[in-house]
């Protein structure tokens, strides 16, 4: 197991967001986290990376408690891709991705760091943007840059918060395929919060369905993304079809409250 999460609890003020979540992330696994808005997906991911400090519970990275590790050690093991960022001051795409090398970096950036950045930019097909300003490129391109930064970090685990929310269908598939390829080639583990159920079904090995801060169901896509589960968690009527062992969700209508 790469990550073991036990009994995680987090609240904003008196509102409990995560309620005793226990789960594991295996090696070379893509784990999709689905659930309606406000289910706690983003908070969950931030708690795992200790961007938010959970009230209760432990997260073990390869058996070691994150609480006993300093940030730099955690950053070497876990990468995080936020949904979007706004930068105030200018930074080129190249420099933004180079930031991902921070956990490995001295004051100067070495040849190796620069080569690694170029490699990742090539992989994500954004090399032509390298010298552009991050604020001047499109939202979808920015999202790819953020993913590139996390990949440049060379951590064994990558957490993604809605990695495809700003991407068109071609780029969605492209990003997902890159992640899958990294999982099978480099053996990294990926955990992603994702709204698009079809995308989640197609690219995840396992899916966790969150609702109201606790786990509603966990398992392979076929067993979790059932019409019943989706109906009770999202309050929508769907038809689930199966093709090549993957479920496809066709939305029908939303129930009134």
């Amino acid at each position: 197991m790469r990550l073991q999460i036990k009994d995680l609890v987090f609240s904003y003020g008196s509102a409990r967001i995560l309620d005793h979540i226990t789960m594991e992330l295996g090696s070379s696994e893509v784990l999709g986290i689905v659930g309606p808005n406000g289910a706690g997906k983003s908070t969950f991911i931030r708690c795992i990376d200790r961007i938010l400090v959970p009230e209760h519970g432990t997260v073990l990275l390869d058996g070691q408690d994150l609480e006993t590790m300093d940030r730099m050690e955690i950053a070497k093991g876990i990468g995080y891709v936020p949904q979007s960022v706004s930068t105030v001051f200018p930074a080129t795409v190249f420099d933004t991705v180079l930031m991902g090398r921070r956990p490995h970096l001295g004051w100067r950036s070495s040849e190796e760091d620069i080569d690694r950045v170029l490699e990742v930019l090539t992989m994500l097909k954004i090399k032509h943007l390298a010298m552009r300003d991050f604020n001047e490129i499109s939202g979808g391109q920015q999202q790819k840059v953020l993913i590139a930064r996390a990949l440049a970090q060379d951590s064994g685990i990558v957490l993604l918060d809605e990695p495809t929310s700003n991407l068109d269908i071609k780029h969605q598939l492209e990003v997902m395929e890159i992640m899958r390829e990294l999982v099978s080639k480099k053996g990294i583990s990926v955990m992603m919060a994702i709204h698009d159920l079809n995308l989640a079904a197609r690219y995840s090995d396992r899916i966790i369905m969150l609702n109201g801060g606790s786990i509603r169901d966990v398992g392979d896509p076929v067993s979790v993304l059932t019409a019943d589960n989706i109906q009770s968690v999202y309050g929508v009527e769907v038809i689930v079809k199966h093709e090549a062992d993957k479920p496809y969700i066709i939305p029908i209508r939303s129930f009134g409250d």
């Binding site: 940030r71 876990i78 995080y80 930068t87 930074a91 921070r102 956990p103």
Partner: peptide, 23 residues
């Protein structure tokens, strides 16, 4: 000057900076 990399990373936001190992 010695902290300038940390300042760079913090320019991308607190969350990102934390995830990249900056206290």
């Amino acid at each position: 000057m010695w902290r300038s990399w940390d300042l760079n990373v913090m320019g991308a936001g607190d969350e990102t900076a934390k995830s990249l190992g900056v206290n």
